[in-house]
Simulated scan of single mutants.
Amino acid sequence: MKIAVVTGASSGIGRSAAIQIAKRGAGVVLTYNSNQLSAEEAVAEIEKEGGTAVALRLDLGDTAGFPAFRDALAETLSGTWQRDTFDSLVNNAGFGEMSMIGQTTEESFDKQTHALFKGPFFLTQTLLPLIADGGAIVNITSNANRPNVTGPGWSVYASLKGAVTVLTRYMAKELSTRGIRVNSVAPGATRTRFADNILGRHPEIEPDLARTFALGRIGEPDDVGMVIATLLAEDGRWITGQDIEVSGGQNL
Rank of each mutant, 00 (worst) to 15 (best):
K2H: 09
K2T: 10
V6P: 03
T7P: 13
T7H: 01
G8M: 00
A9K: 01
I13V: 11
G14S: 01
G14C: 07
A18C: 12
A18W: 01
G27A: 07
G27S: 08
V29Y: 06
L30F: 03
N35D: 15
A39R: 02
A42E: 02
A44G: 06
I46V: 12
E47F: 03
E47C: 12
K48V: 02
K48Q: 11
E49V: 01
G51N: 06
T52A: 14
T52D: 13
V54T: 06
V54W: 04
L58E: 02
D59L: 13
G61D: 08
D62H: 05
F66A: 11
P67V: 04
D71Y: 06
D71H: 00
L77M: 13
G79R: 06
T80I: 11
T80M: 07
Q82V: 12
Q82K: 09
Q82E: 14
D84W: 07
D84A: 13
F86W: 01
V90W: 03
F95P: 10
M100H: 10
T104E: 14
E106A: 14
E107M: 04
S108K: 06
F109H: 01
D110L: 13
K111H: 14
F117A: 15
F117Y: 14
K118G: 09
Q125P: 02
L127W: 04
L128N: 06
P129V: 13
L130F: 10
I131P: 06
G134Y: 07
A136I: 01
V138L: 05
T141V: 12
R146N: 13
R146D: 15
P147Q: 09
N148C: 14
V156T: 10
V156M: 03
A158S: 15
A158N: 12
S159L: 09
S159P: 11
G162C: 05
A163S: 15
A163R: 04
R169W: 11
M171N: 08
K173G: 03
E174S: 14
L175T: 07
S176T: 08
T177W: 00
P187W: 00
P187I: 05
T190N: 07
A195V: 08
A195D: 07
D196T: 13
D196V: 12
D196R: 11
N197Q: 08
G200L: 07
R201I: 11
P203S: 06
I205P: 09
E206N: 06
E206G: 07
P207N: 02
L209C: 04
R211K: 15
T212F: 13
F213H: 15
R217D: 12
I218V: 10
P221N: 00
P221V: 05
D223I: 09
D223K: 04
D223M: 10
V227R: 02
V227D: 05
A229D: 07
A229F: 03
L232Y: 00
R237L: 10
W238H: 15
I239K: 01
I244N: 04
I244L: 15
I244D: 06
N251I: 14
N251W: 14
